[in-house]
């Protein structure tokens, strides 16, 4: 289980003689096909190691089922109808939590970033609320909303809100003053005109990075939010684990990974389209 240490010795950085490192190794863009190939190789290596560990008897299969056992468990779970049920519930929580958390987080961050007074006004409230993890709100979520989808959504909203709030706040505060002066010089003097023409586009890169972090964070919150009994994939994973049905736990982990991957891929495609002005 330990990584091969010999590769990481102090001499590892020295290139082999006769093999030159291109001067701009960091900036050079490898071809698309090459990158795809490396990504695929990485996945294959990961699965191979995982398969080997239980098969070689390093770990008992009930503690870590090999990947080859997962498709079967997946088919059974889908046939029973539980998979679809859990996924639909979780996706609804995910969607609303992400939407509400992102929109309110970005809006609050942008507004606070535009107004010094608002920043001062909220600074201590933010400092007090910010470190409380989403899970710590579960008791209140249950008291306020009961064991309902609303309670689960609430937990997700909290997690996503802060990420987007701080990303948007930082991005807006970092907008180049010179560009705001440019807006003044060309007659765009109102706060709204500056927001639309300068602040939002200038901040968009960082805001989008925050949104993307939120896409991942929201899945974590989905599991956490459903652990206390709201139907969905988190609840189903808890059931499975109490029965030691680790293969089913992995089915849901893989499902989440797959959904996250799809959403993230779609997001990156949209982002690259929006940000095509970047070099």
């Amino acid at each position: 289980m330990t990584p091969p240490a010999s590769q990481n010795g102090p001499g590892a950085e020295t290139p082999a003689p006769g093999k030159r490192i291109p001067p701009s190794a960091f900036l050079a863009k490898p071809s698309r096909r090459h990158r795809g190939l490396w990504a695929l190789l990485g996945v294959i290596a990961f699965l191979a190691v995982w398969e080997a560990v239980p098969r070689l008897g390093l770990v008992r299969p009930v503690l870590l089922p090999p990947p080859s056992a997962i498709p079967q468990a997946f088919v059974a779970e889908v046939r029973s109808g539980q998979w679809t049920d859990a996924i639909v519930h979780s996706l609804v929580h995910y969607f609303w939590g992400l939407l509400i958390g992102s929109v309110t987080g970005i809006a609050a961050g942008v507004l606070t970033g535009m107004s010094r007074r608002l920043e001062d006004f909220t600074s201590w409230v933010v400092r007090l609320l910010r470190p409380i993890p989403g899970l710590a709100w579960v008791p209140f979520a249950i008291i306020w909303f009961g064991v309902t989808p609303t309670a689960a959504t609430f937990i997700i909203v909290l997690g996503v809100f802060w990420i987007n709030y701080f990303a948007a706040l930082g991005a807006v505060q970092a907008v180049d003053r010179d560009l705001l002066e440019l807006a003044d010089a060309f007659g765009h003097r109102s706060a709204l005109a500056k927001l639309v023409k300068i602040v939002l586009p200038a901040a968009s890169g960082t805001i989008l990075a925050g949104l993307r972090t939120g896409l991942g964070q929201a899945w974590m919150s989905v599991v956490a939010a459903e652990l206390f009994g709201v139907p969905g994939l988190g609840q189903r994973m808890m059931q499975a684990s109490s029965l030691l049905a680790t293969d089913i736990v992995i089915v849901y982990m893989a499902t989440m990974a797959l959904f996250y991957g799809l959403v993230d891929m779609g997001f990156v495609a949209v982002r690259d389209r929006l940000m095509r002005w970047k070099a």
Partner: peptide
């Protein structure tokens, strides 16, 4: 507009 100003730096908006 009453005046046009050319800044010392080009000051273009990179997203336009």
């Amino acid at each position: 507009r009453p005046y046009g100003l050319v800044f010392q730096d080009a000051r273009l908006l990179p997203w336009r």
